[in-house]
């Protein structure tokens, strides 16, 4: 762990270092304890475990899917949908948000409409998207992108409007204008908020991929959910849910990791130790 910490600034408080490893480990305690408890309860015959199968059966179900070569295609299909839908939604959200945050006229013109669209429950688009784009990939991607676009738009435009006027003034004193001001002052100032909005966008992307896959898909983790329900295989449903949890957490962690260098200036409360 010392080798990991070599590049830390000398002034960062030492107690945090010990906590960095302890934190994630601590987070594992509760789910593992619950899983182990349920396993013991079912093994000992205290509980039936038919509708809520114990961890061993969930792992077994996933394992047999994996061995049959079925699991990976499902996982990849879902990942591809989330990835592509997120990319489209995030790109559109960033462009619209940047324009609305930077240009008053654009904001006055477009923001009310976007806010109205945002108020529509995204699932309400499903029938329309199917009519427009068909039952296959495009309608699914559109739904995911719609889920992603609004939190990103809101986060980006809001963060630009919230940039400290005083900091921008320092930029002006050094005679920065236009693109240079954006690149050297506005962009770094909004990055933490943008990362946050991307994270909530990604979370919604995962939410909507399930909706998209439940409404009709021949592969993907959402398909495994529907299939498990129709064939009465709760272990398969729970298996898919566990994979959703793992993938959701992993993709979020990747986003945080990628954004880490941009967040170093933050002086946040960070919770109490």
């Amino acid at each position: 762990m010392t080798s990991l910490d070599l590049d830390l600034p000398a002034a960062s408080p030492p107690p945090r270092r010990a906590l960095r490893l302890r934190g994630p480990l601590l987070g594992l305690v509760l789910p593992l304890l619950l899983a182990a408890g349920w396993q013991v309860a079912v093994d000992a015959g205290w509980a039936g475990g038919r509708l809520l199968p114990p961890p061993s059966r969930i792992i077994e179900s996933l394992w047999s899917l994996a061995v049959a070569g079925e699991l990976l295609p499902h996982v990849l299909a879902t990942l591809a949908r989330v990835g592509l839908g997120f990319a489209i939604g995030a790109a559109v959200g960033i462009v619209l948000g940047a324009a609305a945050g930077y240009a008053r006229l654009f904001r006055d013109l477009v923001d009310p409409t976007l806010q109205a669209l945002r108020a529509i429950p995204s699932l309400a688009w499903v029938p329309l998207f199917i009519l427009w784009l068909g039952i296959f990939e495009p309608s699914k991607l559109a739904l995911i992108a719609v889920g992603v676009v609004f939190p990103v738009y809101l986060g980006v435009s809001g963060s630009i409007l919230a940039v400290d006027r005083k900091i921008v003034e320092v930029g002006r004193v050094f005679r920065l204008k236009g693109l240079a001001l954006v690149r050297r002052v506005l962009l770094p100032a909004i990055l933490p908020a943008v990362v946050l909005s991307l994270r909530s966008g990604l979370g919604l992307g995962w939410m909507f991929v399930v909706a998209a896959e439940i409404m009709g898909a021949s592969e993907g983790l959402g398909y495994l959910l529907v299939d498990g329900q129709q064939l009465g295989k709760p272990d398969q449903i729970l298996g898919a849910i566990v994979i959703f949890a793992l993938l959701g957490k992993a993709t979020d962690a990747i986003l945080v990791l990628l954004a880490r260098p941009t967040l170093r200036g933050q002086d946040a409360f960070g919770g109490r130790n």
């Binding site: 005083k166 900091i167 320092v170 100032a189 941009t262 170093r264």
Partner: peptide, 12 residues
């Protein structure tokens, strides 16, 4: 210009 607050760029 030096302002009343330091106004340093927090990310630098």
């Amino acid at each position: 210009v030096v302002f009343q607050e330091a106004r340093l760029f927090p990310w630098l």
